[in-house]
Design a protein around this nucleic acid. Structure first.
Lengths: 169, 169
DNA sequence: TGCTTAGTGAAAATGGTTTTCATTATTAAT
DNA sequence: ATTAATAATGAAAACCATTTTCACTAAGCA
């Protein structure tokens, strides 16, 4: 039972408990409990800017809390994505990646994915200056498709330097 | 052993065998055999503009050639992606989708993916007028990252009309 | 403090994809 | 054409990220 939540969000890092306080409020506001596993998983995501897989998170979490199982990691991540606190990505390598949604960070992501070796190269810097344009696009989409954009990813598929060596096409 | 292939491509639908002739040449040029399963799978992809999953293709192919197995479908698709004849997509629903690469069709794809119900809405029309801009971006990427772009997909993650009902956030 | 119920963890199940391996079909050489 | 070499195939098994099941635990309200 997800409840509606006030549009006026409190600033993320102020108030009792800092980020944790904000998260807690967000959980409660949606009718969920703010449990230890959920705190620890959010903390882990908060400590890095990388895109972690569920197993990455499980292993990191496992060091401090060995009793937290992989199942809970998956379940929590699913919930966090639903709530909108975490973004889920798929680079086509058979495992999903997760990243904490930070308002101070760009919500536009850009990757170069090599179709030969599967390597994914981050090219976010590419989009930074396009924020305005992207905002416009999102507004248009909201109107035309009645769709609320939360996150955006652009992937360029092709051949990386190594893999394109010697190939003309 | 992938061989280099002349940059001057013959027109896709002319010459002996039409598209098939072109495909055949492409296979041979790369050192691969143009077998019946590969023909049939390419034909199937050629007959639709939808994004088919491996199973979709298997079922379609199975009607005419019941002896073609799912394994071959997967193997052929992987090869086709490597050769650059087919694009592979991932909407995060646990199964990959494939689409024939047609030069007459745009290589820019745009989707709205609902993080609540998982529905993927095609919004390609959105990009059609941006072809020039996208070309520039691809050129810059090629230079800066030494990366040859073959295909591009932009996904907007968010809430579709149905799923955002009653939610303020 | 106790009660209700959401949340958790271990193990099993699921399901798309990949690997294995014996067989078949294609190509190049004869 | 026939044959030899090897690439391609199909069925079954393996793989592996993710999900489900179910008995148990802990958060939050009365």
């Amino acid at each position: 039972m997800q409840q509606s939540y006030s549009k006026k969000m409190p600033p993320r890092r102020s108030g009792p408990g800092g980020a944790k306080g904000w998260w807690r409020g967000r959980f409660k506001g949606c009718g969920y409990r703010f449990t230890v596993p959920r705190q620890v998983i959010l903390d882990t995501l908060n400590r890095t800017s990388k895109h972690l897989s569920a197993e990455d998170i499980y292993l990191a979490v496992h060091r401090t809390c060995p009793n937290i199982g992989l199942t809970t990691v998956y379940r929590t991540l699913e919930l966090l994505v639903q709530i909108g606190l975490v973004f889920k990505f798929d680079f086509g390598d058979g495992r999903a990646r997760y990243e904490l949604s930070r308002e101070t960070h760009p919500r536009e992501h850009c990757y170069l994915v090599c179709i030969s070796c599967g390597r994914a190269i981050n090219a976010d810097d590419f989009r930074e200056k396009e924020t305005e344009r992207v905002k416009q696009i999102e507004e248009t989409i909201a109107k035309r498709y009645n769709f609320r954009v939360r996150n955006q990813i652009t992937q360029f598929y092709g051949l990386c330097g190594k893999c394109s060596k010697g190939k003309v096409i």
